[in-house]
Design a protein around this nucleic acid. Structure first.
Lengths: 334, 334
DNA sequence: CTGAAAGCGCTAACAG
DNA sequence: CTGTTAGCGCTTTCAG
């Protein structure tokens, strides 16, 4: 049986309140007793039960993270950032994958509620009305990450996806490309789908290239094969000289497809990705992409959530972190 | 304030024990009251507080996962497998990154202890005596994943790394290669380092190629640049026709290096990786590698841990799951 | 400065 | 079948 505060009290010959005090406010206990207690704690290997503590304090020191699928490389850095910030602030992270399944998401929300989680980090998921209602009912501190909500007053941290896509495509255009295509996420995905498409179109329009906006293929699930999409795209528009892929994973599939088909990159076709995942530095050729500050986003989202939990006033409701075009070797000037 | 069992009892006009009963043993309550309680729960949106429950049951429904660094692609599938199995069995997963730092690891162990975690999944870390002592002191159910211990009687699930490396190198040899090199993890890493090296050497020896076992470069940290290691390796042994990389990430760095230096793969040099991470299907050329059943390992480890927690007798202490050479395009017969 | 006592929300005997 | 009561391990008044 694990030693409890009672055991410590008995061994140190004090009351349990005194033991409690040396743990929470040592200066209020006379030194003689304090050391006796400390020693007792030591010899018993006592550690306070955080369930009992949480029952009183109404704090568990645990945050719930909801992501679509951890296998998506995008989340690796994000979560690491969250974890490092959490450790610093005294939290643990419970990670849950939803596969963007509504029921699974709601089930986890209730799970969090029962576990008395201190706050939620909801990732990549658009906030549909039913999610919002559930969230509101549960009344748990929340920060949206890699997503936001314009309809509801919900704190969030993400990049400006539309602008980032715009910058990617502009980079292609300013490199002399006119026959540009895109592999994007379904437009029903209001975060990574619609916005990046809009950025794509805005760039084209600005340079009077709007005619090529038809050169687009959508994928409906992040794990879908980038190669297949690439094939469809080049069937649709064989004349392309550049492609904007809405994620690096997609770009990597595209690179693979092009290589298989003897289409050289960047000589014949240029490719720009999105996210700057770890392995994008090692593709052949090295992938030019627009980087999201993923680690930093993870850190910021936890800090933001912590501020909300602590009741501090958070200066900015919707935070947008800077993205950056990382120039490597997959785009050629022509 | 969240509604408590008292609120439900009051609203349904029964005692709190009755409410408790409809939640835990509904059949022991007469229907009239049962429906009254159910309705009260419904209208209040009541959910039991799992802290209070856990205080009594001594179960939290939470498992602690310790990994070196989630940014390592290897862990994505593993964790997803753990998560899916956990959801099925009613657990949540707390994920902690240690960077293989001893203090950080021990700090998390104590953290788990205080949180009354039901069990621990300790990943990739060799069990040093001080870890073992700490683990023993804490007395928490534990399963080792992607690692094991020969000194201590600790349950584990992993592949046979030595054999897997042997199979990789044998595949190279049976494809006609004699000038073989390796990029491996430091030998002080008894799991991914030493064993894979031993498999490499055993294969060489078996085919009387032991002379080339000097063609090896070690990296000391998984995140180290595979390109640099590759450079050192080819400086050391320019005549190589094949390289065994101890991880796919390393293999991808190697591929990148070779391409940068105009060394064609697999025409001039063949490459075989290890792990079969998601993106290894999309490298150029597609990477031949030895696959670990990562997802399955995650599932099995949670099931195993669950069995231990439930006090069931677990048939096998140390489980070894099958690996498999996945032949793609990066190794050429010569 | 310190001990006794109440209570966080819930489960589990124990009577009735 | 159901209510009362006693805790689970800890923090927090409240006296002294």
């Amino acid at each position: 049986m694990k030693p409890t505060i009672k055991d410590v009290a008995k061994l140190a010959n004090v009351s349990i309140s005194t033991v409690s005090r040396v743990m929470n406010a040592p200066e209020t206990v006379v030194e003689t007793k304090r050391t006796r207690v400390t020693e007792a704690i030591e010899t018993l290997g006592y550690r306070p039960n955080s369930l009992a503590r949480g029952l009183i304090s109404r704090k568990t020191g645990t945050l719930g993270v909801i992501i679509p699928d951890i296998r998506n490389s995008y989340y690796a850095d994000l979560i690491r950032g969250m974890e490092d910030a959490s450790k610093k602030l005294g939290y643990n992270l419970i990670i849950c994958n939803t596969d963007s399944d509504k029921n699974r998401l709601i089930s986890y929300l209730n799970n969090f509620y029962e576990k008395q989680i201190d706050g939620i980090l909801l990732t990549s998921e658009p906030v549909y009305p039913d999610y919002y209602n559930e969230l509101k009912r549960l009344k748990m501190p929340l920060v949206l990450v890699s997503t936001h909500s314009l309809e509801y007053e919900l704190p969030s941290v993400k990049i400006n996806d539309e602008q980032a896509a715009y910058d990617a495509v502009s980079y292609l255009i300013s490199s002399g490309h006119k026959e540009i295509g895109m592999i994007g996420f379904d437009l029903s995905d209001s975060i990574a789908g619609l916005t990046r498409y809009q950025g794509f179109v805005r760039a084209l329009r600005e340079y009077n290239l709007e005619a090529v906006k038809k050169n687009i293929v959508y994928i409906h699930d992040w794990a879908e094969n980038g190669e297949e999409a690439a094939q469809k795209l080049f069937q649709l528009a064989p004349e392309l000289t550049a492609v904007f892929a809405a994620s690096d994973e997609l770009a990597i599939g595209l690179l693979s497809y092009l290589h298989e088909n003897g289409i050289s990159v960047p000589e014949r076709v240029s490719v720009i990705g999105f996210d700057n995942i770890r392995l994008s530095r090692f593709t052949i050729p090295k992938l030019t992409t627009v980087a999201q500050p993923k680690y930093e986003m993870g850190v910021r989202s936890v800090e933001k959530l912590h501020r909300i939990i602590s009741g501090e006033k958070d200066p900015i409701l919707r935070e947008y972190l800077p993205h950056e075009v990382v120039v490597r070797d997959s785009v050629k000037r022509r």
